[in-house]
């Protein structure tokens, strides 16, 4: 199939639209005949990363690329960056605002969940912004049988 390439803007604190990238990516994966289990793993990863941009950053972009062999999503935000990446990767550690927590976020499970579901995860951060790339390899058993 032709590669699927999309760029999405993600606005700061736009909780009402959080999940749009995950939802559109899920739809694209369904159309390619990928299995429910594979789609779920990708959806979890994309959703968590998308939420992170919404609740922690000044806004940013998500680039989604789906090819025959992989799904790769890169998120780039405009800051303020993750102060301590090692801590951020610990399950349960959170710097979420009360606004985010009131909306059901901020359990400190975002990055650990992304790490658990993805095949590759690359996270770099400075005060100018955070870059996150997550990759899922498509194998023979990733398709619906």
């Amino acid at each position: 199939m032709d590669p699927y390439i999309r760029e999405h803007n993600i606005e700061r604190n736009d909780i009402a639209n959080a999940g749009t990238v995950a939802s559109l990516t899920k739809r694209a994966l369904k159309q390619r005949g990928l299995s429910r289990e594979f789609i779920k793993q990708v959806t979890i990863g994309v959703y968590e990363a998308e939420i992170n941009v919404v609740i922690h950053s000044y806004g940013g972009t998500a680039n989604v690329a789906i090819d025959d062999d992989f799904v790769e999503i890169t998120f780039q935000d405009k800051g303020p960056g993750i102060e301590n990446i090692e801590q951020a990767l610990q399950a349960g550690y959170s710097t979420a605002s009360s606004y985010a927590i009131e909306n059901g976020f901020g359990a400190g499970m975002g990055l650990p969940n992304i790490q658990a579901v993805s095949d590759e995860m690359d996270l770099q951060s400075s005060e100018n912004g955070t870059y996150l790339r997550i990759k899922f390899n498509i194998k023979e058993d990733s398709y619906e049988h």
Partner: peptide
């Protein structure tokens, strides 16, 4: 939780 994000999660799953 009765906010709209719950529906987003429910729909995705």
């Amino acid at each position: 939780l009765s906010n709209i994000n719950v529906l987003g999660v429910a729909s995705l799953l």
